[in-house]
Each structure stands twice: as structure tokens, then as C-alpha cells.
């Protein structure tokens, strides 16, 4: 008998007390928890900005037309000049100037030689201050936002879900997902958090506010 068959047989033997007619749906799972921990009337974008900043990431809020300038200012402040640019990143968001934008294909050593990366996001989570990347357009494969030491992530306000349940429902688990809550950190020394280990040590998040026209369209 293969180990697979042995283990399955052992499981079935161990569960002799479970009635044969019982199915998983007969084991009640009461989901009395909240779908969202936002207070009534609380602005998810405001909360998202606050919570991201709690992790010592820097948050910028910008109107759509101001995004290139905000990115330019952030990159200048960080002294970041050579960046990985994922395919599908909207060129209208890119600032001008003397920066080098490197497109795929990029090898790992090439990524390592860059100062940072700029990506979009798939979803944001207000309550936890999390951005989620799903390797979709403008986000790149996972290595792109990992190997360079600086990550600037542009997220549209309407991508921000209130809380984790809503965020998971918006995501496709078939895609490789990375949930990012602040820069790389560790609690391994005396159980106290310090930022900056293997992942990007600096994280800037640019929230693109909804324009007036978009708000009107939605309502």
C-alpha cells in the first residue's frame, strides 16, 4: 500500500466516531464575526492611509493629475534613480526627468543592481493597512517588487477594501498573491519589531484619490 493509501486509511480509522452520513456541511460554522471593522461613516481611504503609516511606510495622497509629480518627489527624496518598471504600468503616471526605467526581461542580478521598483496594486485593505499585489498588469512578477531595496506602490482609492473578508473576495487565488503590510520587518530580536530585513526596506504608497467625475459616476 502506498503512503497515500496508508495515511488516508489511518485518517478514516481515526475518525471512526464520525457518523458515515455526516458531511462537512453538517459541522456548523457560525460566522457571527463582522465582515468589516470599519465604524459606520468611517472613511476607508483615510483609515488605510493611517494604518499603512503605522508600519512606518510613507503614504502620499494625490489627485490623478498630480500622481507623476508626487512620484517624482518621492523618488528624489529617496535618491532613487534606476527603477524596474513592470509591463502594463500606465505611462501617463510616470514622471519625466533623468530617471532610468528598466523594463522586463530583467534577470535577478539586474534587479539587484536597481534602486527600486514602481508598481500598481490589485487591492488594498483599510483595516490592516495592507496592499495586495497579484502580478497583474502594472505589478510585474513577484521578484520585481522584492529584490530592489525600494518599492513605490500606486493604488487607486476605489481599490481599497474595507477589511480582509472583502479583500479576499475581490482576489483570485489562482494568481500568485503578495500581501504587503509595511516594509520588511522582524520581531526576532527580543520580540520587538524593527523594520528592514530582506524585503524592500523602504515602502512608499501613493493613493490616487477619486476624481470628482469618478465619484459622480459611481453614485
Amino acid at each position: 500500500m502506498s503512503s497515500r493509501e496508508t495515511i488516508l486509511a489511518r485518517i478514516r480509522g481515526a475518525l471512526a466516531d464520525v457518523p458515515a452520513e455526516e458531511g462537512p456541511e453538517h459541522v456548523a460554522v457560525e460566522r457571527a464575526y463582522r465582515r468589516s471593522h470599519l465604524e459606520p461613516g468611517q472613511d476607508p481611504v483615510e483609515l488605510f492611509a493611517e494604518r499603512v503609516a503605522d508600519y512606518r511606510a510613507t503614504v502620499h495622497r494625490a489627485a490623478p493629475e498630480d500622481v507623476p509629480a508626487v512620484i517624482a518627489r518621492a523618488l528624489t527624496e529617496r535618491g532613487v534613480g534606476r527603477l524596474a518598471l513592470p509591463s502594463g504600468f500606465p505611462t501617463e503616471l510616470l514622471p519625466g526627468g533623468s530617471r532610468q526605467w528598466q523594463s522586463e526581461p530583467l534577470t535577478v542580478p539586474e534587479l539587484e543592481a536597481l534602486d527600486g521598483s514602481v508598481t500598481l496594486a490589485a487591492v488594498g485593505i483599510a483595516v490592516t493597512g495592507t496592499i495586495v499585489l497579484d502580478a497583474g498588469p502594472g505589478q510585474g512578477r513577484r521578484a520585481l517588487s522584492l529584490v530592489p531595496d525600494y518599492h513605490l506602490c500606486v493604488i487607486r482609492a476605489e481599490q481599497i477594501a474595507d477589511d480582509l473578508p472583502d479583500a479576499l473576495a475581490r482576489l483570485d487565488p489562482a494568481r500568485p498573491l503578495t500581501f504587503i503590510s509595511g516594509p520588511s520587518a522582524t520581531s526576532d530580536i527580543e520580540l520587538d519589531r524593527v523594520e528592514g530585513v530582506h524585503g524592500p526596506r523602504t515602502l512608499d504608497v501613493v493613493i490616487v484619490e477619486q476624481s470628482v467625475e469618478q465619484s459622480v459616476e459611481q453614485s
Binding site: 494604518r51 487565488p173 500568485p176 503590510s181 516594509p183 520588511s184 520580540l191 519589531r193
Partner: peptide, 29 residues
């Protein structure tokens, strides 16, 4: 679980990184 685990383990609303993957993805990983 992703609400309970980080809060219970490192006392954070969310740990810095959570990765999920499903099998293999062409061109990524």
C-alpha cells in the same frame, strides 16, 4: 485565520508579508 494569526503571534494587525500561490505560474516564481 489571517485576522487571528498575526494579531496572536507578533501582535500586529497584519504581518509584513503573506504570500499565496497555487501550483506554478508561467514566468513568475
Amino acid at each position: 485565520f489571517l485576522q487571528l494569526l498575526p494579531r496572536s503571534s507578533t501582535g500586529e494587525r497584519m504581518n509584513p508579508y503573506t504570500s499565496t500561490w497555487t501550483g506554478v505560474t508561467e514566468g513568475d516564481g
